[in-house]
Design a protein around this nucleic acid. Structure first.
Lengths: 331, 331
DNA sequence: GGCTGGCACTCGGTAGCATCGAGTGCCAAG
DNA sequence: CTTGGCACTCGATGCTACCGAGTGCCAGCC
């Protein structure tokens, strides 16, 4: 454990480094608010902090930079920060005005978060399979093609185009739809795959196709929304870093499992290698799960450089996650 | 108009510059295939090309770089290029296997294009309003909340959450839904906004709310899918350029109007300032509209650096656009 | 007349070198 | 234990010399 003085020196270093991106020297720290000792004393303490692995020198006779361990300590020592007035206002305004369609709202939420933090924002939507089916319908689109539409209790609509292989008239489609509705309403969507035949040959032909189509799309990744990559890009000065981060963010499955993994470890913040992804070594991830009716159904997060503004990011993610959960609980 | 020799010299310069990103000197051009004259002659011709605005020198005594006019000439002189074998194979495989849900397919198409070109790929989906409504439904989600679901003829599903303001039982919702169905099936979705009341007070209360919700989301931007931003990032070496391009790509409305604008001008390729967007001065955009049942309904494109591989990009965009149109026409 | 080899010239990039200064570690005194 | 002082380090900056890719131009050749 760090003593009080070491802790405040570490804090000063991290805060200045976050602002300037330059190695910070003992002189600057000595002048920082909350530091009452001389630069010489600071030097001694900084040497000790370096010995303990909280700081590093890029080269002898340069200032110091926080290590992952240093950031970790800094973050752990943060008292739960709160948003500044205008940002809180912005969040409030957003969720007051938020309306309409769930996916649109999640996408807009990433915009909000990206705007609040100037980093890349990520929102993982509620898993589709979880919710109970509220309504099922089969709609004819073209001679051999129908669309299976299921409305889930959380407002998500699942759809699959179904190649029927042969003509099916409206009547048969209607019957098949009604049969499916009887089977799966109130059940999770996966129940579609395992239902019984109806007895009517024409209807059963359709049912087989539909069940196959639904099952095929069943390992449907959860939906991920990403935004603010431009802000993320601005935080790095090596284009190669930007490129590798973009590569990660483009792989939805990877993003989902990354966030889930961090949340499962009970973390709010994953710094550098803590993310478990080597291309994110220079990044930090701040996340918060959100709950609907007391159940964790998704995650919001921001991805930025390790030298991100943690207090701001933590506050933004926490507030947005909480508000989003409330909003979704309302329906 | 350029004479034959100037044209082939320009072509050689562009091709080498695309490959190396270095100013190209007369010596290299002289060794290029198709060039049979000495470097001294090439020098004279290159000086003339510079005088005519096709090339520039970054500084005296350096090689030359194509100008926008130079790229334009190069592109216009291209004979319609075709995809190499493996890429064509990839496209074929993709569309053979493509199935299921239209939006998923469009998203996957951007992945395909991004993979083919190593630039950022953009696909603009068919406008939602255009297609005729096939089916309408009102589903209760929560006590005061219902979901309006409309299936359009092109397989798109439009949905709106509707705050009913008060409880409405299933029966009333069903009636309202049936009433709407009678009005708008076969019509574009916008017909929902202008229907008549039903006469039944409870049903009409619901109808008012639904009509408002549908109208509110009506200026719904068309859906845009973007992918391959990491490849785009790798094409530039200034992070600031990457950032500004990302900023553009994050604004869906801007992307849509950009593509539409280019297509409307009858172009396949927009180079640098031809895009009309200043942050894209160092970019080129290759686009192709795709048609369903003979009607242009959307656009595919790639966005890369001005020194992009035009033949490859043009071929990829053309083939993908065409195949996508076919695929969508089938239903 | 047009092409070509030759040649002087230009100028960005790189390497070597001195200088500067922010920052360090250490020490002796308070 | 803290602090001012001091010698030291080493990246950054600026200067100079040099190299070489590339140019423009010219005289000779086909």
């Amino acid at each position: 454990m760090l003593d009080e003085r070491k802790a405040s020196i570490l804090r000063a270093v991290v805060e200045e480094y976050i602002q300037t991106a330059q190695p910070v020297g003992s002189g600057h720290v000595a002048q920082a608010p909350g530091i009452t000792v001389s630069s010489a004393t600071v030097r001694n303490e900084m040497a000790a902090l370096e010995g303990d692995g909280y700081l590093v020198q890029p080269h002898t006779s340069a200032g110091r930079i926080p290590t992952e361990k240093g950031y970790r300590e800094f973050v752990d020592a943060l008292t739960q920060p709160s948003l500044d007035r205008t940002a809180a206002q912005q969040v409030r305004a957003f969720f007051d005005q938020a309306h309409g369609e769930i996916e649109q709202m999640l996408a807009d939420t990433t915009r909000l978060l990206a705007g609040l933090t100037t980093y890349a924002a990520v929102v993982v939507g509620p898993p589709h399979e979880a919710a109970a089916v509220r309504s099922v319908q089969l709609v004819s689109l073209a001679p051999h093609v129908a669309l299976f539409v299921a409305v889930l209790g959380n407002g998500v609509v699942e759809k699959r185009t179904v190649d029927l292989g042969a003509d099916a008239d409206e009547h048969v489609l209607g019957q098949a739809g009604a049969h499916l509705a009887g089977e799966v309403i109130g059940q999770p969507l996966s129940a579609v795959a395992t239902g019984a035949p109806s007895g009517e040959p024409a209807v059963d032909a359709v049912l087989v196709r539909v069940r196959a189509a639904v099952a095929a799309g069943d390992d449907d990744h959860e939906h991920v929304f990403v935004n603010g990559t431009s802000g993320m890009a601005a935080s790095f000065d090596a284009v190669e870093t930007v490129r590798s981060v973009l590569t990660i963010l483009e792989q939805q499955l990877v993003v989902v499992s990354l966030l889930r993994d961090v949340v499962d470890r009970g973390l709010n913040v994953a710094i550098g290698t803590e993310t478990g992804m080597q291309p994110l070594a220079e990044c930090a991830l701040v996340v918060a799960p959100y709950t609907v009716d007391g159940e964790q159904v998704g995650t919001v997060g921001v991805l930025g450089p390790t030298r991100m503004n943690y207090p701001q990011a933590l506050a933004a993610v926490a507030v947005v996650g909480q508000r989003l959960g409330h909003r979704l609980s309302e329906g």
